[in-house]
């Protein structure tokens, strides 16, 4: 078992499991957190992640296969995706490749939303490029919702992740992502969500566009 990365809420290990290369995701207890709260969060997120990762497949969104859910030790065992995080991949692409990737991301987010699945933590660290597919991971904060507000927040978080981490190309990336989203969700629905997104942004502290 080899430590792959220390995420925010879980340790990720690469391991062999019945002949398969797998990722073991263990949500570790946070010493800083009240024990009652800690257990509640870890258990519910472990189950939710497994459920919704599977659910995403129904919306044609690639996710790792879940092999095992252990609620006791708040551990998931899932398929290892051999690829590059979008965070790193973006910097290596030329413009047309970038457009294609971002458009694909937008389409996949649109597909999730069309089945009322909200990812809850859309950042470029949580998407893996593997061949011509983009895998979505980290469904710990995901949930089901039909509301435009929740979909708007989902996209707002993605926009902010781009603005902060990919500030040089965030405008283009977002444009392509929304292009993809629009293709899947349709013009009128997309503009409704975009309006919501703007509204959420303006709700933030000290936005000068706010009236």
């Amino acid at each position: 078992m080899k430590l792959l990365s220390k995420g925010a809420e879980a340790d990720l290990y690469i391991a062999e499991w019945y002949g398969r290369k797998v990722v073991i995701k263990r949500r570790i207890s946070k010493v800083y957190r009240n024990p009652c709260l800690d257990l509640r969060l870890r258990a519910s997120r472990t189950v939710r992640e497994a459920e919704n990762m599977h659910e995403a497949k129904k919306a044609s969104v690639p996710t790792p296969i879940i092999y095992l859910v252990d609620k006791e030790s708040t551990t998931l065992i899932m398929e290892y995706i051999d690829g590059l995080r979008v965070k790193e991949a973006l910097g290596m692409l030329d413009n047309s490749q970038k457009e294609k990737l971002c458009e694909q991301i937008g389409m996949k987010v649109g597909m999730l939303h069309s089945t009322s699945l909200i990812h809850g933590d859309l950042t470029t660290s949580n998407m893996i490029v593997c061949g011509d597919k983009v895998f979505f991971i980290d469904f710990g904060l995901s949930f089901h919702s039909h509301s435009d507000e929740d979909k708007g927040v989902d996209l707002h978080l993605l926009k902010r992740a781009l603005d902060s981490t990919h500030y040089k190309e965030s405008r283009d990336c977002l444009k392509y992502i929304l292009q993809g989203y629009r293709e899947v969700s349709g013009e009128s629905y997309t503009s409704k969500i975009l309006k919501k997104m703007k509204e959420i942004e303006y709700r933030g502290r000290y936005f000068s566009g706010r009236t």
Partner: peptide, 22 residues
């Protein structure tokens, strides 16, 4: 006590996520 625990754990988690990301 509970208000502090929950409110601070929230910003702590968001911080930890940002730390892992940046």
């Amino acid at each position: 006590f509970s208000l502090q625990e929950v409110a601070f754990a929230m910003i702590a988690e968001a911080t930890e996520r940002s730390l892992a990301h940046t």
